[in-house]
Design a protein around this nucleic acid. Structure first.
Lengths: 362, 362
DNA sequence: GTGAAAGCGCTAACAG
DNA sequence: CTGTTAGCGCTTTCAC
């Protein structure tokens, strides 16, 4: 058995030595098994097993001039730096009265998680790895490690995106404000919201609606709001009777805003820009002693899990989150395959899930 | 301005040429700015800006003999390959009656997402990147790309773990069955469950409990179950009066199992091995026309978001998920810093959140 | 303080 | 089919 420095990972040289062939043959046996004699291949494979050899992705990347990895850049959250201090168990278990309050976890993480999984699966199919980074200071040094970058709109400044795009393929995720020259994948926010209005106004015949929007600077919110207004106009609903307030996509703020709205006058239906807001609206509605859907209908948007567990379960527009992640990676692959193709902008379709908060019929 | 091959990313050579220095100096100016003259440093920095140079992580890794990245291996789910086919929007929005049914997304993803974020932040603090992979066929080729691997117990066979551990630091996450010689981080499942029993039996004075367990092969479940039984024994509750059933940690199965249990006889309290199961139990309880907490108390475990949105909100044991991810990466860093230290097994403390389904007092 | 040169582990011509 | 060899881009002695 060949001796080698202990502690150091075995290399092609070790394998070659151990199998009695050249390093080139080892490389071939691994990359294109058909190009070597079955006998040689077997000896190489044995040596690999024996040594526990794993190819160095770095060396391979250097020689190949491609890393075999894609990057996914997630937006950061304000609280992202918190709560990572591990608290070793000291035997005591803290007990907290959590009634009324809620754990601060928002719905957004689930959304990203699903996109991440879709992206990971697609990358894997392509034989690539997925590098995940969360936006923070300017350290976009991840760009030296990947062949392409999928970026959530809010995760990077337009300028930085342009900078990185000079060097490698970049695809924007869920950002319909996308720079027109950069590939993008997003979901059909406008049509989704229109379909909801269609149901409420067209099917249920309700014309007294209010809208609980998200933050004013959110592109997603803008598109949904627009879809809402447009559909309403199509039905000839008087714009002036329409009431709308801005929240921040968060549950707590939504509850406060909804409470104001209800205090003014209770609309027959309250459409919310996302599920978190709808959950907040539900809080306010219950606090006001109103019933859903009897007194007021509520709808959300996104399709987060918690929406289905609310009481009543919330009607929502489900985004194809996993597909979104997969599509982003595919866009990167396509761009690498053909760098000169015109920019692609893919829009995925959404699905309305009618649940108790705004049922199929009244 | 220096000409260079277009399309190819600039290298140290380009920067050196453009700045009129040697590549060694470029490297120094980047790695240890103090080791070069301020004037030189500035010229190098200018050249870097001008060229849009980004160091190649691969080349650096090769020279350094470390990749500057950690890997996180997540368990796969059966449905993970599904639903990644992007459906381009054709203008039509499907509308589905989703009452009663629920979207199939489980609570697990959220859990992993939080762990992932904790790990990413910690890796970033350490100047490293985080590579994410989901368990699939034997392709654990990710091990050639990272300096250490954090693995969820179920994500890799013991054998495979041992194999990888021969080559690089490995830390097991949330797997108390951990091989004793491999570092691990987990949460205090046993104490968490004991604290719940303590509350139900000790504080609320209830002695008629049932337990809804998870799958028989889950280490997490085993530990929680053990904590439950132990605490009960400590209070002298008759083991034979104790009823327990196994579910699969999923909501649907839990509902079915809980229904059987209730049909037999309704216990005063039903403790569940995780939140998903508790949600399922709630389904069965409501279907049976029983009220929570008046007729029966329910508790879960994990602290997933949906638990707080259920009606009533579910009392649970919150795991420090983000801290868990951070701790895993720290363990890797520690192991790299001192490869000879004895194996570390860190247990993080949990917190009981008392909510309406099992309130502080009756 | 700076430059020359020798690798890091692997791939891909190019010969044989 | 297999071996030799020249890089891939960067870090790091070792001289100067």
């Amino acid at each position: 058995m060949a001796k080698r420095k202990v502690g150091a990972a075995p290399t092609v040289y070790d394998v070659a030595g151990s199998a009695g062939v050249s390093i080139a043959t080892v490389s071939r046996a691994i990359r294109s098994p058909d190009s070597v004699t079955p006998a040689t291949r077997e000896r190489v494979e044995e040596a690999i097993q024996r040594l526990g050899y794993v190819p160095s992705a770095s060396a391979r990347a250097l020689a190949d001039r491609r890393t075999g990895a894609y990057g996914l850049l997630l937006p950061g959250f304000d609280d992202i730096e918190d709560a990572v201090e591990p608290v070793p168990s000291d035997g005591a278990v803290r007990i907290t009265d959590d009634r009324g309050s809620r754990s601060p976890v928002g719905g957004a993480p689930l959304y990203f998680d699903e996109v991440l999984r879709g992206a990971e699966v697609e990358a894997w199919r392509h034989g690539s790895a997925l590098l995940v980074a969360v936006r923070r200071g300017q350290r976009q040094d991840i760009s030296g490690r990947v062949d392409g970058l999928a970026v959530f709109g809010r995760a990077m400044s337009e300028e930085a995106i342009g900078q990185v795009a000079r060097r490698m393929p970049v695809v924007l995720i869920a950002d319909e404000q996308a720079a027109p020259e950069i590939d993008s994948v997003s979901v059909d926010n406008a049509r989704g919201m229109r379909a909801v209005v269609e149901h409420v106004v067209g099917v249920l015949g309700i014309r007294d609606l209010a809208y609980l929007a998200g933050p004013k600077d959110s592109p997603d919110d803008a598109v949904r709001r627009h879809g809402f207004a447009e559909a309403l106009a199509a039905h000839g609903v008087d714009r002036r009777r329409l009431r709308m307030r801005h929240g921040d996509f968060g549950r707590a703020r939504a509850a406060a805003v909804a409470a104001e709205l209800l205090a003014e006058r209770v609309p027959r239906a309250l459409l919310c820009a996302n599920d978190q807001s709808a959950l907040g609206a539900l809080d306010a509605i219950h606090a006001a002693g109103l019933r859903v859907p009897e007194d007021i209908l509520v709808t959300g948007f996104d399709g987060i899990e918690a929406g289905g567990y609310a009481s009543p379960p919330i009607t929502t527009v489900r985004q194809p989150m996993r597909a979104l992640g997969g599509a982003a990676i595919r866009a990167l692959e396509a761009r690498i395959a053909d760098p000169t193709a015109p920019p692609q902008h893919l829009t995925l379709s959404v699905e309305v899930l009618l649940r108790e908060s705004c049922p199929p019929t009244l």
